[in-house]
Design a protein around this nucleic acid. Structure first.
Length: 416
DNA sequence: TCTGGGGTCCTAGGACCC
DNA sequence: TCTGGGGTCCTAGGACCC
């Protein structure tokens, strides 16, 4: 059986871990720039706060109900996530970490309810984060079981009986099926397919004609035929992206160049942390899509292919700037920009070229020194000169909680 | 005034080959 | 006037997920 373990209101629960006095009060966590609400406690949900809602639209509800608001502290959430995953691994070696707050586990032991109870208690006792567990024959069914589990106070639900499954599928709307987003479920509803049970009964050729193979797989999964097996070896990622929205629009090329350099540096750092090289680099800049203007929005995008894969900060930044020059248009206000690296390979597995110079070794040494200094003395101690040297950040995080787990100075004090 | 960030996969259609 | 058949590979765009 497949067990889906899902943390309840994960980011909010992480903040509450160190602020237990908030445990029954409404809490929300914001996206970067303190822009949107991306995690809500049950109390906040009940007050009508919607997922992804911009902060300014919810301001009234927040003030009237004294909702506690946090900026996102991804270092903290990542650390707590690691601890949870480590505990879960004790229940099954066949486990797939699906996201920061979710994992699928393959478990053979027959007493599913007992296992669920143990998992919920264990994570609560050892880590202190509330979770819910859904169990089914396939990932898609375990997702449905999980959404039922969230409504039960015991926190778990097992879907192993065909009659009950049929009944539940007939009450599950297509929008609530994992793998069917807005577009697909709307098309289905327009064609009379309203519930998961309707989808199960739908002709396979019609599905392939109207949609694609993944939608057919979803139908098979609903019938209990597994199409998405658990992969316990995590696949190396295929692309790396660093992008940010700016609190205030940027007009000048010089400013934008500094940010692009920063993003390229950060992306290169991620690349180097995974011991990889990149062969392809893309840069994009976009104007503010929410601005109420008569002229249409501009999105500049340019890709560059390296002759030889690289992991050099200097090379990646240099070509990012060259791409930026190609797409920058004066007189516009830019809201967001980013750098992407793709076509990745392992550090020592790449195609060389007759055209490449012999300086590579020297450059590699230099890059390693940069990493060494930044790892030893803290982030941003050594930068490339085109970067945003003085860190006048245009990205807001006004309500950030302390970094309780990853910073000596932020460690909580306990009075005994 | 203020609206996030980071991923994956599939497919149609174009470009190319003999 | 008349102009084949059968492939592969790449990419942009669109869908999805958290």
């Amino acid at each position: 059986m497949i067990f889906l373990v899902d943390c309840n209101n994960f980011y909010v629960s992480c903040e509450r871990l160190f602020r237990p006095e908030l445990s029954n009060l409404p809490v929300v966590v914001l996206s970067n720039n303190d822009g949107c609400i991306i995690s809500r406690s049950n109390e906040a949900k009940k007050l009508g706060i919607k997922m992804g809602e911009p902060l300014f639209k919810a301001k009234k509800i927040i003030q009237e109900n004294k909702i506690n608001v946090f900026s996102s502290n991804f270092e903290l959430y990542g650390e707590i996530s690691n601890r949870i995953m480590k505990e879960l691994n004790h229940f099954s070696s066949s486990m797939e970490i699906y996201s920061i707050d979710e994992a699928f586990l393959d478990i053979d032991f027959q007493d599913y309810n007992l296992i669920c109870e143990n998992i919920v208690n264990q994570i609560n006792n050892i880590i202190g984060i509330p979770i819910s567990v859904g169990v089914g024959y396939t990932k898609t069914l375990s997702k449905i079981a999980g959404s039922i589990a969230k409504k039960l106070s015991r926190g778990y639900f097992v879907l192993d009986n065909t009659v009950i499954t049929k009944n539940i599928l007939s009450k599950t709307s297509v929008q609530d099926i994992w793998g069917l987003g807005n577009r697909y479920s709307n098309t289905m509803i327009n064609n009379g397919i309203k519930t998961a049970d309707n989808l199960v009964e739908t002709n396979r050729n019609w599905i392939l004609n109207k949609f694609n193979i993944n939608v057919l797989r979803t139908r098979e999964e609903l019938r209990g035929i597994s199409c998405y097996p658990i992969s316990s070896v995590s696949e190396p990622r295929k692309s790396i992206r660093v992008s940010r929205s700016f609190k205030k629009d940027i007009n000048s090329y010089e400013n934008l160049e500094k940010y692009i350099s920063d993003f390229a540096f950060l992306a290169s750092k991620k690349l180097r942390n995974e011991n990889k090289r990149t062969k392809e680099l893309s840069v994009f800049i976009v104007t503010n899509r929410f601005r109420n203007t008569s002229f249409s929005n501009y999105m500049g995008f340019q890709k560059y292919s390296f002759i030889v894969s690289t992991n050099s900060y200097i090379e990646i930044i240099r070509y990012s700037i060259l791409m930026l020059r190609k797409i920058f248009k004066g007189g516009l206000s830019y809201k967001k920009a980013g750098v992407m690296l793709s076509n990745l390979s392992l550090e020592n597995q790449y195609q060389t070229s007759y055209l490449s110079s012999n300086q590579d070794n020297k450059l590699d040494d230099l890059m390693e020194k940069i990493d060494y200094l930044n790892d030893k003395y803290g982030k941003n101690k050594v930068l490339i000169s085109s970067q945003n040297l003085y860190h006048k950040s245009k990205i807001d995080k006004k309500r950030l909680s302390p970094n309780y787990l990853n910073s000596w100075s932020d460690m909580p004090n306990i009075n005994i």
